[in-house]
């Protein structure tokens, strides 16, 4: 066997991410990841539909099924999906060529998945969506705006503030309270 120098540039190895809730031994997981025909696809917009995923990932080969990730409580899409192919080669092709391109104007990311198991379609975050949406700091309108934690915090903040103001304002005349309210609203815009 002669040496194929092209392999120098292609780390055939899989990424370092491991699903922490994988049911099975570490070795099973490694084997599954190296033989599976399933991809995890992340950073989707909440508004991306299943048929778009079929269309895009169908470009790399025959798709067996697509499983949309759902919010555990609301049962609405929460920004990820699994794409299962019939062959490993097709999945590899998709990983090489579709990962890091755009869908609905978002750079989507794909990685190997050990295979879909019922229950995995649900978000694992406290709020029902994906965990990463709880750490995100930016405002992302296609993934529900600010992350849930910030959203919750700011909601609490405004509520407290309203309450505090209400108690203070209780001592002020109605007329001035109205003007104060206007001031209060406009100053925050």
């Amino acid at each position: 066997m002669v040496f194929d120098p092209r392999t120098l540039d292609q780390p055939k190895d899989i990424s370092a991410y491991r699903d922490q809730r994988y049911q099975g031994s570490v070795r099973d997981q490694e084997v599954a990841l190296r033989t599976s025909c399933t991809l995890y696809v992340g950073n989707l917009s909440y508004y991306t539909k299943e048929d778009q995923v079929y269309e895009l990932f169908g470009r790399a080969g025959d798709v067996r099924r697509v499983i949309m990730g759902l919010d555990r409580f609301k049962k609405t899409p929460c920004g990820f999906c699994f794409v299962e192919y019939y062959t490993r080669e097709d999945a590899e092709l998709a990983l090489q060529n579709i990962s890091n391109t755009r869908m609905d104007d978002r750079v989507i990311r794909a990685d190997w998945d050990a295979g879909f198991v019922e229950g995995r379609q649900y978000g694992r975050g406290k709020h029902g969506g994906q965990v990463r949406d709880e750490y995100r700091k930016d405002y992302d309108p296609e993934r529900g705006g600010y992350n849930r934690a910030i959203a919750q915090k700011s909601k609490n903040y405004w509520e407290n503030r309203r309450r505090r103001h209400a108690s203070v304002l209780g001592q002020i005349s109605i007329q001035s309270r109205q003007s104060h309210c206007f001031y209060y609203i406009f100053s925050k815009l």
Partner: peptide, 11 residues
């Protein structure tokens, strides 16, 4: 020799 042959074929 194997490596050089590989480079001749694939590069």
């Amino acid at each position: 020799i194997d490596i050089v042959a590989g480079c001749a074929i694939y590069l």
